[in-house]
Design a protein around this nucleic acid. Structure first.
Lengths: 263, 263
DNA sequence: GGGCTTATGTGAGCATCGATAACATCGATG
DNA sequence: CATCGATGTTATCGATGCTCACATAAGCCC
């Protein structure tokens, strides 16, 4: 499958697309970002790549199957950003400090990834795929999925002596819950203004590290503070909203719930 | 509106239902639980209460509007369970211990509520409503929504001296993130077997409280431990799955992704 | 009571969607 | 060169969200 017929672009219009599966997968993120997961339709994806809707079913059993593949693609993209961020970390003489900073960086990438494209985030954790089934290895940059990266970071914390080995067991759940929860609440929106985000992230990470047993001294050394004082605000800088595509269209048309509601 | 014509039940079949809005709202949870949010249709809800589909639009502008109302109903139900759980707490001579226990209980109710009906949980935090806009006060048992209950619990922790006033600011985000994240990951499923749940919850709450500055002594006194040693497992006790209703039907028919996949 | 307005329900209808079946096309393989 | 399998097309079905014109009932004023 996927026989790489690049001539498809120069030739008039080939009957066989050549790599429809990937073309659909490539076109889908934009559609999802624009219409939300609920508004995403296989037909429109097929239309976007200039192919009949039935053709898509040669490559995806379901609409859910496409979303599942999209979710895996999203997780792989997240893993990639994480790897990049880790690679770009400035070196530090203190291994413990470095381990803590890397751990925090992982969390910030996670949250940034979520708020950068809420719809994509929702696809990744929607009811289409199972977090347990592994994502295709060829998608992963260094073969590590986000969970594996988290585990490695936690192991790094233990090795560096930042956290005790006793608290390592089950720490992935604790860490993932904290960061994923924050990301979810931010994506869900309405609770925090965009300005609160950094402060909220700082607080969550600080509490998380402290909760895992990182000493206040090390936190201070790694530059982890509680963040500026902020609370919950009721203002809402929404982006994606509404459910059905048609509803989204109406909303955009009437300006009822589009981004600049209070602008 | 809603003029309480109870005779609707005894009279043959009245042209006007009498309280369609609430009837739809009452029928919806079951449908959502069975078909998932994505599979929920206004038409079927109307059908379930024996009314034409167009009638529903007299009471809900949108499908999203119904889901939004449903979400608020869910949040109110969660608030109610929380209130009940707090009311049922055994008294304790130690106010700090009691504050901690109440806080933990709130978290456990949250998580239990989520896993008890994943689809409902997804409705509550789906892209239909804004967490910021307040839910109708008449739905709330004691006028407190879940966020308010959390805030009160945190204030209680401060008053009891369990946490410092300095860490109170922004603590709702920290706490909500941790618990909501755990609930989300559990609902998303696949990561934890049902047996891991309690242990994971215990770890998350312990880390959260420690991260907020609750002393180890108080944690010990309140009976908060890290939970039995467990890690991530790849087994998956899924319940709701798949996206579209039709897809869900096929899945059930073929047994492809139903609950007892590996059984 | 009779007649008005208004809230609420009905039926038909449109555009779209997911999914399938029968048919068309094309590359590869004998 | 003929055939086959992979892939794409058209046509179609059933269902959905949503709207419109119309029907019915309830409230209300005289």
């Amino acid at each position: 499958m996927a026989r790489m017929r690049i001539q498809a672009t120069r030739r008039k219009r080939l009957y066989h697309h050549g790599d429809l599966r990937n073309a659909l997968l490539a076109a889908a993120p934009d559609l999802v970002a624009r219409h939300g997961v609920e508004g995403f339709s296989l037909r429109e994806a097929a239309r976007a790549v200039g192919v009949s809707s039935a053709a898509a079913y040669r490559h995806f059993e379901d609409r859910s199957a496409l979303l599942r593949a999209l979710a895996h693609q999203g997780l792989a993209g997240l893993a990639q950003r994480m790897e990049e961020a880790l690679a770009a970390m400035p070196p530090s003489p203190d291994p413990a400090e470095r381990a803590v900073a890397g751990f925090v960086r992982l969390g910030s990438v996670y949250v940034e990834f979520a708020v950068a494209d809420p719809a994509r985030f929702r696809v990744m954790f929607g009811p289409w795929c199972d977090l347990a089934d592994p994502i295709a290895p060829e998608l992963l940059p260094l073969g590590r999925d986000p969970l594996r990266l988290l585990q490695d970071a936690l192991d790094g914390l233990v090795r560096a002596g930042a956290i005790a080995a006793a608290t390592r067991a089950g720490a992935e759940i604790v860490a993932w819950s904290a960061v994923h929860g924050l990301a979810s609440l931010l994506v869900e929106g309405g609770l925090l203004t965009a300005g609160d985000r950094d402060g909220a992230f700082a607080r969550v990470m600080r509490a998380l590290l402290a909760g895992l047993g990182v000493s206040p001294a090390l936190l201070e050394r790694a530059g982890i503070r509680g963040g500026p004082p902020d609370g919950l605000s009721a203002s809402r800088p929404r982006t994606e909203r509404a459910g059905t595509r048609t509803a989204a269209r109406r909303a955009t048309a009437t300006g009822r719930r589009s981004a600049g509601r209070r602008a």
